[in-house]
């Protein structure tokens, strides 16, 4: 009966994660919709600008190849933005109280389970979109490129998951959470370099796009797709200066760390 604390922690975390996956398996609509929506973007937007004049995208890249990186990031971002929903429903229906009455080794196992679940879910969805983009002839990153893509997505997903979990504990109910997700989702896509390069935007929008975390994820992935990825290569010509891949990834890392640190007091209070 006496189990080491670390074993207890992994036992409770795994059990909570398993629950989320069983839910997903029996109600796969989130998984399907999370792939279907970006797929539609990919097909429709790709077709819409298929005849765009040469030189629209700097470097003579076709629009489809340009768009791929944006849609992949959008897929991971949308999935992670929903991270807080299961937690919110558990709060509302009182299932969370059931968990909190149990002698959990650490109550962070509830948060950890959500992070594990949403990370795997969003990576699987992104891989599905990558496969679809490949099928549409928009390319595929090579072996090392794939690692860059996954690592970049991981950083973004961590940041967005932290944000969503924070909202799930701060907001009063799922209606409010869904409203925030709904409002945040598309504007963040448009105000990034997912659909068009900064050089194409009015300067105010260019500034927004150059400060948008989605852009910091999109540009290294785009470089990886074009086979031009190197940590020291400039991937983003922002109005405030040129950013290398390493700088974009560092920005994402700092953002996730900052978000996890800033939601901690809230989690401590709500889970105490």
């Amino acid at each position: 009966m006496t189990v080491a604390p670390a074993a207890q922690l992994s036992q409770e975390t795994l059990a909570l994660t398993k629950r989320l996956f069983v839910q997903l398996q029996r109600r796969p609509s989130t998984l399907v919709a999370g792939v279907l929506q970006p797929l539609i973007w990919l097909v429709l937007f790709g077709a819409l600008f298929a005849n765009a004049p040469d030189g629209l995208i700097p470097g003579g890249v076709s629009y489809g190849r340009f768009l791929g990186a944006g849609v992949i990031v959008f897929t991971a971002f949308s999935a992670a933005l929903n991270a807080g929903l299961p937690v919110m429903f558990d709060r509302e229906f009182g299932f969370l109280n059931r968990l909190l009455v149990a002698p959990l080794r650490s109550r962070y196992s509830i948060v950890l389970a959500s992070v594990l679940y949403i990370t795997s879910l969003s990576l699987v969805q992104s891989l599905a979109i990558m496969a679809a983009a490949w099928g549409l002839g928009y390319g595929w990153p090579g072996g090392a490129g794939l690692l860059v893509v996954l690592f970049t997505l991981l950083l973004l997903v961590a940041a967005v998951t932290a944000l969503s979990l924070g909202l799930a504990f701060a907001l009063p109910g799922h209606i409010e959470l869904i409203a925030v997700i709904f409002v945040a989702n598309l504007p963040l896509l448009f105000a990034s370099t997912a659909l068009a390069p900064i050089s194409f935007m009015p300067s105010w929008l260019g500034w927004l796009a150059a400060l948008n975390p989605l852009t910091f994820a999109i540009e290294p992935i785009r470089a990886a797709y074009l086979g031009q990825f190197s940590l020291n290569a400039v991937v983003l010509e922002a109005p405030y200066g040129s950013l290398t891949a390493a700088q974009c990834l560092s920005a994402l890392l700092i953002l996730s760390a900052a978000l996890f640190v800033s939601i901690r007091p809230l989690l401590d209070r709500k889970l105490s």
Binding site: V3, Q8, Q11, E12, L14, A15, L16, K18, R19, R98, L99, A102, P103, L104, R105
Partner: peptide, 8 residues
């Protein structure tokens, strides 16, 4: 089973 894991 979930409950059992939460009580270790």
């Amino acid at each position: 089973q979930l409950q059992a894991s939460l009580y270790h």
